[in-house]
Design a protein around this nucleic acid. Structure first.
Ligand code: SF4
Ligand code: SF4
Lengths: 154, 154
DNA sequence: TAAATATACGATAGAATTGGTCGTATATTT
DNA sequence: AAATATACGACCAATTCTATCGTATATTTA
């Protein structure tokens, strides 16, 4: 589950909108500037998000984008899944994009991958933008700059 | 953390070698056939795995490949990380391939992604080939063909 | 009502990654 | 010496990713 830049961009903007929720639209130019996203590229991203019903747009002089629904009604999993297509590490353990594999009956590591998928999916689908946002406010016990290995690596 | 086909192929072959551990080499032709991996492609994969010290090769008439170390000394994380480069869903929360992001100080969802990374890394680095293999033998409580959603999706 | 400013959207394109083939060299066993 | 195995670099096609451009259209404000 590698996050594409597109997904990253989308999330940056969404959280900007969450932060500004209820205080009117923000023009795309501003969204692009604050989040360091190429503006013309962001247009497409916003289009998709509007189609999904996550954001609303108002054209005209003081127009821009606004969050279309309450931040606790949009799940991280939805967003990632929309832009990256799939959460699962491999097709054979994906629900939304399940792809059969002729080896699956003899495969020794599919159950292991399924576990990981389940864990990722659980975390992704339980986390709303609102939840992730508010969690990020209180200085968590551990959010190192460079996430130095705690026994593991990545 | 999307598994590339290369990684998938590598794991298939590794588990074949695990299953055959201690019973002599298996020629690459056989490894390719049993695991449905293009033979010429597999050559490169085996080369890399030999360089990493996971497998050994013996040329000649009754040669082939064999596991170079005990199956409980090779971790899933090592393999995936080698072929896919990185476990983390995004560079800014990666340990081995950490990549700074100018937004990280104001980013609202990096902590969330870090959590996911930690969970994936933990599972990957704690699981040895031997462990995954033996787990796959006892019919686990749940390993559905198509992993139908248990509240989550993929 | 005209100007300014906003979104809408398809076409296109460069770069990077992925997945794989081919030719050939070399080592070992029988 | 023949047969069979691995070793390895070059090469390539397809896909995906990331992004830009031109232009159309809708709305507000002066
Ligand atoms: S080999 Fe195992 S893990 Fe890879 S795709 Fe087939 S079933 Fe899934
Ligand atoms: S925006 Fe947040 S998540 Fe995306 S790369 Fe920068 S820090 Fe990491």
């Amino acid at each position: 589950m590698k996050l594409s830049k597109k997904t990253d961009y989308a999330l940056r903007v969404l959280f900007t909108l969450v932060e500004h929720y209820g205080r009117g639209p923000i023009p795309i130019r501003e969204l692009a500037r604050r989040n360091e996203v190429p503006k013309r590229f962001l247009e497409h991203i916003m289009l998709e998000m509007k189609a999904r019903g996550w954001v609303d747009s108002t054209p005209g002089k003081r127009g821009g984008y606004t969050l279309a629904k309450s931040p606790d009604k949009i799940m991280m999993g939805e967003v990632v899944r929309h832009f990256d297509g799939v959460l699962a590490p491999i097709g054979c353990v994906s629900v939304t994009h399940y792809q059969p594999c002729s080896q699956s009956s003899v495969c020794r590591f599919r159950p292991f991958l399924l576990n990981i998928r389940n864990e990722i999916a659980r975390q992704m689908d339980q986390a709303s933008l609102a939840g992730v946002f508010s969690d990020s406010l209180r200085p968590s016990p551990e959010t190192p700059q460079n996430p130095s290995a705690d026994g593991c690596e990545t």
